[in-house]
Amino acid sequence: MTEIRTPRLILRRWSDDDLVPMAEINADPAVMQWIGDGDVQDLEETAEFLERVEEEWDDEGFGLFAVELLGSGELAGFTGLSVPTFLPELAHEVAIGWRLGRQFWGQGYASEAAQATLEFALQDRGLDRVISIDRTGNTASGNVMRKLGMTLERDVVHPEFGHQLQIHAIDLTEYQA
């Protein structure tokens, strides 16, 4: 079982106990405003999402980690790696992403978890490049990407929803943890 510990977090595979807290995160309009079409997700949609996440772990050898607070054991959300199949021109890339509950924003958890995920991508999975995708205007995610050393490569349009997305990238052969 893949598990990563940081000073404040545990990044781990998903358990059945994570469904309800993740569904609560996905039900928050403030959390979901930058995701897909901005719609919240209910318990059933979250269960389907987590099933796809676990399938990606099985198929690709990487996926989205559940992010747990080390002190309390509380689920903060997720960070991890995925193939951005919703953008066909990037389906050969590996993207890093994150989603945390609103009560965990502004505390550095996303950056801490993402740094650990980049190290995992380089050291454990041997990836030499990782991208990240954010919706234009999502300054919080853009700030995390800059902290990771990622640079803006280009803008694209979401093929389904029509909004602007920004593609950031980092060459992991030059990455300094």
Results as ranks from 00 to 15, higher is better:
residue 2 T to K: 13
residue 4 I to Y: 03
residue 7 P to F: 04
residue 10 I to D: 02
residue 14 W to P: 03
residue 14 W to Q: 04
residue 24 E to V: 07
residue 24 E to L: 11
residue 25 I to L: 01
residue 29 P to M: 10
residue 30 A to P: 03
residue 30 A to D: 15
residue 33 Q to L: 13
residue 35 I to F: 14
residue 38 G to Y: 05
residue 46 T to K: 00
residue 47 A to P: 02
residue 52 R to W: 15
residue 52 R to S: 15
residue 60 E to M: 11
residue 62 F to R: 04
residue 65 F to K: 05
residue 68 E to G: 01
residue 73 G to K: 02
residue 74 E to L: 01
residue 76 A to L: 08
residue 80 G to C: 05
residue 81 L to Q: 05
residue 85 T to G: 09
residue 87 L to T: 00
residue 91 A to H: 03
residue 92 H to G: 11
residue 92 H to S: 15
residue 100 L to V: 12
residue 101 G to T: 01
residue 103 Q to K: 14
residue 103 Q to T: 14
residue 106 G to W: 03
residue 113 A to P: 08
residue 119 E to D: 13
residue 121 A to G: 06
residue 124 D to I: 01
residue 126 G to V: 07
residue 128 D to W: 05
residue 139 T to S: 14
residue 142 G to F: 06
residue 143 N to P: 03
residue 143 N to Y: 12
residue 144 V to Y: 10
residue 145 M to G: 11
residue 146 R to V: 15
residue 146 R to G: 09
residue 149 G to A: 08
residue 153 E to V: 14
residue 154 R to I: 11
residue 155 D to M: 10
residue 159 P to M: 06
residue 159 P to N: 07
residue 163 H to A: 02
residue 164 Q to Y: 07
residue 164 Q to R: 15
residue 172 L to V: 04
residue 174 E to G: 08
residue 177 A to N: 09
